[in-house]
């Protein structure tokens, strides 16, 4: 016993360290992606931050299960949506002031990827929620079937909204002075 115990403890500690290390790698890879997705849905960075954190806390709680997933980002996005909606629901009950839409403003042309993403997120937030979610996933390279599964919508909804959302986005871009 006295010999086995340290070995078992050491093995356990090593496993824990491995688990933790793998989660850190996971966080490093997916945290920016989840955040980027939510920023296309919500202008309030505090809410985005809180929803992102909650998703990863849940992911850690279920890490043993989740780490087996082929493409865990699907689950992350699905769960992050619910977390954000819950956060927004709470906020809505507390105050109505955050409901004001982001004012239109003319921006200078983006010069790097981050500026382009910020501008795009601002435009996406002007679309109806479902349309912006679908378009955003489509822009990130998800297939229509995958989008339908992650967001829990019909396949033909994805097809329709992808087209409608893209038209709207083009109109918004043109109104902001970015013409073809």
């Amino acid at each position: 016993m006295s010999v086995v115990e340290p070995v078992a403890a050491r093995a356990e500690a090593a496993a824990a360290a491995e688990l933790r290390a793998s989660f850190e790698v996971f966080c490093h890879e997916y945290h920016p992606k989840v955040r980027r997705f939510l920023q296309g849905q919500c202008a309030d960075l505090d809410l985005v931050q809180e929803a992102t954190q909650e998703v990863f806390i849940t992911a850690w709680a279920k890490w043993g299960h989740l780490r087996e997933f082929d493409k865990p980002l699907g689950w992350l996005i699905k769960t992050a949506r619910y977390k954000l909606m819950a956060q927004q629901g709470l906020r809505r009950q507390n105050s109505m002031t955050t409901l004001d839409e982001v004012p239109d403003r003319l921006l200078a042309a983006p010069t790097n990827a981050q500026e382009a993403r910020d501008l795009l997120a601002e435009w996406l937030r002007q679309l109806p929620r479902r349309q912006s979610e679908i378009l955003q996933m489509s822009l990130d390279g998800w297939s229509d079937e995958e989008i339908a599964r992650v967001l829990g919508v019909a396949y033909n909804t994805v097809r329709t909204y992808k087209r409608v959302a893209r038209q709207r986005l083009r109109r918004i871009a043109e109104e902001a002075g970015f013409r073809a």
């Binding site: 966080c27 920016p32 955040r35 954190q53 983006p110 990827a113 382009a116 501008l119 795009l120």
Partner: peptide, 21 residues
């Protein structure tokens, strides 16, 4: 703009935040 935004590489700021997260 879409092409520019599509760059998947996290910025150094995003990486730092992910580590802190």
């Amino acid at each position: 703009i879409l092409a520019l935004a599509a760059d998947p590489t996290p910025t150094s700021f995003e990486s730092a935040r992910a580590r802190r997260a």
